[in-house]
Write a protein that binds this DNA or RNA. Structure first.
Lengths: 208, 208
DNA sequence: TGTAAAGTGGACTAAAAAGTCCTATTAATC
DNA sequence: GATTAATAGGACTTTTTAGTCCACTTTACA
């Protein structure tokens, strides 16, 4: 299910789909780097090499384009996280997941933050549909984390009384807050430290 | 030290200072509610009942105004947090601090997020000066938290080997990440849960 | 293979935005 | 109280942005 198609029951040829994808791809990059507010439709046109009529053919306007970007980014992130977390069942595995995220963010010295988180804080108060889509995506992401924790619990690495959902929320918040502090400091360290604290807490529960 | 004055060595009458303050106050509210990108100078003019020449008299342009807003919000937040945290030296005190933040955020069902955090994620990648100012403010805020943790440590509620700075970073990240998740979900719960996990971790260190 | 609908290019309009400028007050200082 | 500079009002220009329109091309499919 997507939130962004403007002309729902319309036919869509392979050529049209390709153009639409080019627009979304260009918009995604620009909005990640420059921010949603600072990205104009002309920017998107120039970056994708597409004409204005095509953009308005595929999207009702900027809001619709932003929603398509959210869908696109969300799909990518969830896919990546599903691959990274889907079969993790040990603390060691969780730490490897952490290392990958930290290393990736270190490449740009923390700049730009989390692809999903940046969109969320910029768009949530302006577009209710976009906010709901983002909320669903965070929930989905968090469920992947909860899945890992549940497997930890099943394997005895977490006590039965541990509240999986609350731990997943805390871990997700640490991740997102860490991204933001790293973005502001232009330094990954706070992100790494934040996740480490959450993981240390999770680990400590089995030694209580 | 401020980052935002456009005409540094200029004389400033009481009347001028009042006008400048009105502009900043109006801009602060608008940018918190609508976001920085969606707030136009005309919006600020209308909300403050001030003319365009005055705005450009006091500020070089929108970026300078945004920096003044950051200074203003930062001052308010740091002042509030200093009052709330400056003399806290118990876990109970920390929990009262948590309750105040959560209750306050609950009033708007999580919307708009943290006054400083929202600015940070929207502005950090666009204006280096603003980013640095925000980074300093987060550091200052975090030092207030570190002060509390140090007093906890001095009082024996935290073991000597606990890394105060890392715990403060983790707590700050939990707070900020919680704000963001709450903003996206339009529900304070994730924010409360995230801080609770951080506090539980801190508390658990003394029982290890 | 004809035709209807999808897709495309780009000029054009309208609105909103930032930023400038000139004139008139008001306040501080000698 | 004269004079200098700050403060204020608001019309004006310029630039940017969103959004429209129409002529033309390509694709699907009956």
């Amino acid at each position: 299910m997507t939130t962004a198609d403007s002309h729902n029951g319309r036919r869509l040829t392979a050529r049209g789909a390709k153009t639409r994808a080019r627009i979304v791809a260009a918009a995604t990059d620009l909005m990640y780097i420059k921010g949603v507010g600072a990205t104009t439709l002309d920017d998107v046109l120039a970056a994708s090499g597409v004409s204005k009529s095509q953009l308005y053919h595929h999207f009702d306007g900027k809001d619709a384009l932003v929603r398509a970007v959210i869908d696109h980014v969300g799909e990518r992130v969830i896919e990546r996280e599903r691959a990274a977390l889907g079969h993790v069942s040990t603390i060691r595995g969780l730490r490897r997941w952490r290392d990958a995220l930290v290393q990736n963010n270190a490449l740009r010295h923390g700049a730009y933050g989390c692809a999903l988180g940046s969109l969320a804080s910029e768009v949530s108060d302006h577009d209710a549909l976009a906010r709901q889509a983002l909320s669903r995506l965070f929930t989905e992401w968090q469920e992947l984390l909860a899945g890992v924790l549940r497997r930890l619990q099943d394997g005895g690495a977490l006590p039965p009384e541990a509240s999986i959902d609350q731990l997943a929320t805390g871990l997700m918040a640490a991740l997102q807050g860490g991204y933001m502090l790293a973005q502001t400091a232009h330094d990954v360290t706070p992100m790494a430290t934040a996740i480490d604290m959450a993981l240390a807490h999770i680990e400590s529960l089995s030694k209580g």
